[in-house]
Amino acid sequence: MTSNTHTPLEYRSHQSQMNILGFWVFLGAEIVLFSTLFASYFVLEHNTAGGPGGSDIFVLKDVMIETFLLLTSSFTAGLAIHSMRNNNRNGLLIWTIITLLLGAGFLYMEINEFLHFIHEGATIQTSGFTAALFTLLGTHGAHVTFGIFWISLLLVQIVKRGITEKTASKFFIASLYWHFLDVVWIFIFTFVYLKGMAI
C-alpha cells in the first residue's frame, strides 16, 4: 500500500491513518480488559455457593441464536465496508441498518437470557460464578449497546455528508469495533457456554 491511488478512502489523510492506528491500539487495550474478566470467570466458575452452575442455566438453543445473530451482523458489517469502498452509499446504509438490527436482536436475546438466569435463581449476587458470569456477559452486552448508538449516529453523518474521507474513516473504525465484539463473543461462546454446558 505505497501508492495513494490504490489506498481506500479512509486511509487517505495522515490524520485518518493515525486514527485507525490509534483505534487498533485501543482494541489491544480492550483485549486486555476482557482477558481480566475471563480470568476472573475461570477462577470463580466452580464457586457456585450452593446456587446453580453453568450446566443448570445455559440453554444451547438461545446461545446458538445469539451466536448466529452476532456472527451474521459481523458479516453484514463487512459488506457495509465493501459497499463503502465501492462508493455505494445506499449499500453502506442498508448493510449497516441490517447490522444494527441484528445487533439489537442479539441484545434482545441476551436480556431475555439474563431474565431466564435470574428466574432460575442465578442473580449477580448469588455466587462467585454468577458474579463473574454477569460481569463478563454484561460488559460485552454493554459494548454492543454502545456500538449500536455510536453507529446509529454515524448513519446520520453518512446521510447528511455522504461518503467522504472523514466519514469513511469513522465508519471503518466503527466496523473494526463491531468485528472485535464478535471476536470476544467467539471466546465467550466457546469458553463460557460450550465449556460450561453438560453433555
Partner: peptide
C-alpha cells in the same frame, strides 16, 4: 500490537 495484547491476555488468564 495485537500479538503483544494477546500475549498480555494469555499471561493474565493463565497466570490468574
Amino acid at each position: 500490537n495485537i500479538i503483544y495484547s494477546v500475549f498480555l491476555a494469555l499471561v493474565i488468564v493463565f497466570g490468574s
